[in-house]
């Protein structure tokens, strides 16, 4: 009785253990026997990737992220890969969201297939430290893209709001009026252009007539020049030119002389001006009664004294003439 019981219990335990273990291994994609292939990739940031994140090669799941560890300023991620998977040439690893629900995946692809995204190329460049570790980059997640889109939407909303403020009903009316004015203006311009075109046509006809006349005049000029040419052939023109040269030379000499004379005249005028200024100052002084001349002009006593002195001088001279010995004494020894 005891043995069947033990067997049943043991069988149940074994069955439960196998079911749970097998189920876990199957769910995690583990294999019994057959070693997995590992590859490592270096990232600056792994975003939302975690241990167990699927690894995808050309869109097919080929393994999972096995381990993550910080090394300096990088994160080194070990990938557990299916041994049958062959990696592309120059492989790089991109971490990206695989859906809108926060699922991430590690995509192993060729470097040429990365594209021209500057940020991705920068990350790959920094993570490429050589060795067996593949360079990796993290693509922006939906949240970041949504945040950027949100900022753009905000900017657009702000611009739209400003346009709404600036472009109100009055502005719309003005714009419609401006368009109507512009339409009328363009009609006027078309009319003017047609008018000008007609005028231009008339003008061009007149110009054409003028050109004909000019051509006729040129023919006449040609004839005149031929005549002049024939007249200059006997040396008359040469003589005329020589005479003209002589006349010009004499004219230059006369001009130089005239220039000298005018300079002298200017200097004389300056001296006359100075003289007149002096005379003016003297006249002012005389008029104001300053100086001898002024006193002579302005003071009548001097005139009277002078007359008296002259009268006394005449009397003296008459006395001298009459009595020379009174005034002159000549002695010899």
């Amino acid at each position: 009785m005891r043995r069947p019981t033990d067997f049943a219990v043991g069988l149940t335990m074994l069955g439960g253990f196998l079911l749970v273990t097998g189920g876990v291994m199957w769910t995690k994609g583990s294999r019994i026997g057959g070693a997995d292939v590992h590859a490592s990739a270096r990232f600056i940031d792994v975003g939302g990737a975690r241990i167990g994140t699927p690894v995808v090669v050309r869109g097919v799941k080929a393994g999972e992220v096995d381990r993550m560890e910080l090394q300096g300023r990088f994160v080194v991620v070990r990938l557990k890969l299916d041994p049958a998977i062959r990696l592309p040439d120059e492989p790089v690893v991109l971490l990206n969201e695989s859906s809108l629900f926060g699922e991430w995946q590690a995509t192993v692809t060729a470097r040429d297939a990365v594209g021209r995204d500057e940020e991705v190329l920068r990350q790959l460049g920094e993570a490429n430290q050589g060795g067996d570790v593949l360079p990796g980059a993290t693509l922006p997640d939906i949240a970041k893209l949504t945040a950027v889109a949100g900022r753009i939407a905000g900017d657009v909303a702000a611009v739209a709001e400003r346009v709404d403020v600036a472009f109100d009903a009055a502005a719309a009316r003005e714009l419609r009026g401006s368009i109507r004015d512009f339409s009328a203006l363009s009609t006027e311009l078309a009319k003017v252009a047609r008018e000008q075109s007609r005028h231009l046509e008339t003008t061009s006809k007149q110009v054409r007539g003028g050109v004909d006349q000019v051509a006729h005049a040129a023919e006449l000029l040609l004839a005149v020049s031929q005549r002049i040419d024939s007249s200059t052939a006997s040396g008359e023109l040469g003589r005329l030119v020589n005479d003209a040269n002589d006349a010009a030379r004499q004219l230059r000499t006369a001009t130089a002389n005239l220039s000298t004379v005018s300079e002298r005249l200017i200097r004389s005028q300056m001296k006359v001006d100075a003289f007149l200024a002096s005379v003016d100052s003297i006249a002012v002084a005389v008029n104001s009664g300053r100086g001898t001349a002024g006193l002579l002009v302005r003071d009548s006593s001097l005139y009277v004294n002078s007359n008296a002195a002259i009268a006394e001088l005449r009397a003296l001279i008459a006395d001298v003439r009459a009595n020379p010995r009174r005034y002159i004494s000549v002695k010899i020894f």
Binding site: T12, G15, G16, F17, L19, V20, G23
Partner: peptide, 16 residues
């Protein structure tokens, strides 16, 4: 204590 995890393990498998 021993058998309940076994039973629950099997129940997990059956339920899924």
């Amino acid at each position: 204590t021993i058998m309940f995890p076994v039973i629950v393990g099997i129940a997990m498998f059956v339920g899924i």
